[in-house]
Design a protein around this nucleic acid. Structure first.
Lengths: 342, 342
DNA sequence: CTGAAAGCGCTTACAG
DNA sequence: CTGAAAGCGCTTACAG
């Protein structure tokens, strides 16, 4: 079943080569012939069979999207929005996106996305951290790759990141402009490049504002190697307050952590932001509806996906380009949790 | 580049037919030959090229996942978890999953997922509501389809739903067991089948508990035809309280709505749950971290995706089976927002 | 500007 | 139990 290019050619009274040329838009076909063929294609609502195109052209028209299962199911819809951005942009190139999640374990043989084994994609996008072995494996098979919100120091790739340093800089500026200077920092999973950049941004900016001594003191920040969670915020604020009761504000490396922090402070009957101001990062949905609403740094997740898809299409077309890092801008959003002055 | 079945056959000293038989596991091949071939396959790490298999066998080994872009980017990771479940299960069948989102508009020609046009999938899963025209279009091309958390009354399909009625029943039971009887109901998007079922569950259960009069009174529920949001909760509780100041509890059709409701009540200095108890539905991540924590009904999203994938694989293998509706069980999770007695 | 022909890498009857 | 051969529906040099 299904109408084929042969049928179209016969009906239009031309060869299948010419039909193919019209479909692909390549080569020269006279206006008249082109129109004639196009009409038949439209009339019969013909679409070339992808698998035949793939086999003949040695291109799949697919891109693979890889992310860890925990990332994808994370409540804040962070990586699923990146996925959405990729999908939206892929649509513009008439590419399909194949999804594969990977578990946390580094059981390489089992973890390898099927579309890699069946050579089913022209390139892949990796969003967030994945097991290092897997990234090396992918690197070794020499397929075009773009990383979004992840990178490995030793590996050259196209990368999309958000401007973490500048985001933190905006936060510190916002807090100090209100006279807050004793500013702590809480983060989980500090080996993640974004978290690392956020912490560095904190250190650097505090230095610039003459608060380097405070920021450098171990007791004023809380960093753990754990997957992001609200518990980290709870533990973190408890830990910092124990040693620094005069804390005026705290920056959490993301909103989820900030939520735990808010909760613990409220439990201790701190007034927010009068006693302690709290700021998150990512600007997830519940930042706007939490009680109090949470100041945060807005990260344009969908745009990051779009950028990633663009970079990948570029790389597929032009495999020898030099590698690029695209940094998308971010912006602080001030809400109740840190608005001290009015 | 790339090793082919021909290479494997030559090295193993057999015909390509035999190699193909070994790979597919079909037909009879002697133990000895099978082992010999398998060894070569392993040694060379050979994987058949999917597009060639697809073309020759007229099967794609792909399933398509369709959801609306707003669903996928919804903060609560509801549909992205369903997607995750589908992906996990598809892996067991060695199927790829292709993702396509559709916009809200019903601009059919443009909205049609590419994988449908290129006949790139053996079946599709639709999660959540999509434009009705599109569903009809898909129905008409007669491809295996499974709907998750969606259905159209006039259309026969395999469907996966959560047990909405029973979830609400558990809530009402929980509330009445604490002596709360003046229980309101708030929901957006009441044309969505799940919301509809939840409202019906409310009416029916209230009736069973002898509270039918209260539940039937228009003033005690708030239903609007809008996409789920926290604003609906805010408006809803305001509206109900205006006419029913003696309200003791309110059931929100989902957690997002409940968040808006909590916020408004706190703004008015109601104590929760002492003055008014609040319960949501879905058990999203922030139900556990909100202030107060929110009672809700846990919906196993990943399992719903898994069930959907299973149904679809069944349907692909056996296109003439009678249609099934699978209802996954749910369970109320009592938290601070509704725990009145201790 | 257009057509005839080879070839992409598999699967699947069909013989034997 | 195994092999030779046709065929899946395209693309892409190559002629003309």
């Amino acid at each position: 079943m299904g109408i084929t290019i042969k049928d179209i050619a016969k009906i239009a009274g031309v060869s299948i080569s010419t039909v193919s040329l019209v479909i692909s838009g390549k080569g020269y076909v006279s206006q008249a012939t082109r129109r004639k063929i196009q009409k038949v294609i439209n009339d019969y609502n013909y679409r070339p069979l992808r698998s035949a195109q793939q086999l003949a052209s040695n291109q799949t028209g697919n891109i693979g999207f890889i992310t860890s299962d925990v990332h994808l199911s994370r409540s804040e819809a962070f990586y699923s929005r990146i996925l959405l951005g990729v999908e939206l942009e892929a649509r513009n190139y008439d590419y399909n996106v194949l999804l594969s999640t990977v578990g946390e374990g580094t059981n390489i043989p089992k973890n390898i996305p099927r579309f890699l084994k069946g050579r089913d994609v022209d390139g892949i996008i990796i969003a967030g951290s994945i097991p290092e072995d897997l990234l090396w494996y992918i690197h070794d098979i020499a397929i075009p790759v773009v990383l979004i919100d992840y990178r490995l120091p030793d590996l050259q790739h196209d990368v999309v990141m958000m401007d973490n340093r500048h985001g933190i800089q905006q936060i510190v500026q916002h807090l100090t402009s209100q006279g807050l200077e004793r500013i702590g920092f809480i983060a989980g999973s500090k080996n993640h490049p974004s978290i690392k950049e956020r912490f560095e941004g904190y250190q650097i900016t505090m230095e610039q504002f003459g608060l380097g001594n405070f920021a450098r003191a171990e007791k004023n920040h809380f960093l753990v190697m754990q997957e992001t969670s609200s518990d980290i915020g709870t533990e973190g604020i408890a830990s910092i307050l124990k040693n620094e009761p005069a804390l005026q504000a705290v920056i959490c490396a993301n909103d989820t952590t900030a939520m735990g922090c808010l909760k613990e402070l409220q439990k201790r009957n701190f007034r927010i932001p009068q006693d302690i101001a709290v700021v998150g990062f990512d600007d997830n949905y519940y930042a706007a509806i939490s009680q109090p609403t949470l100041s945060s740094v807005h990260v344009p997740k969908i745009e990051m996906g779009v950028e990633g898809a663009k970079l990948l299409m570029d790389r597929i077309t032009n495999p020898n380009k030099i590698y690029q890092t695209r940094t998308v801008p971010v912006e602080v959003v001030v809400r109740e949790s840190s608005r001290v002055t009015t």
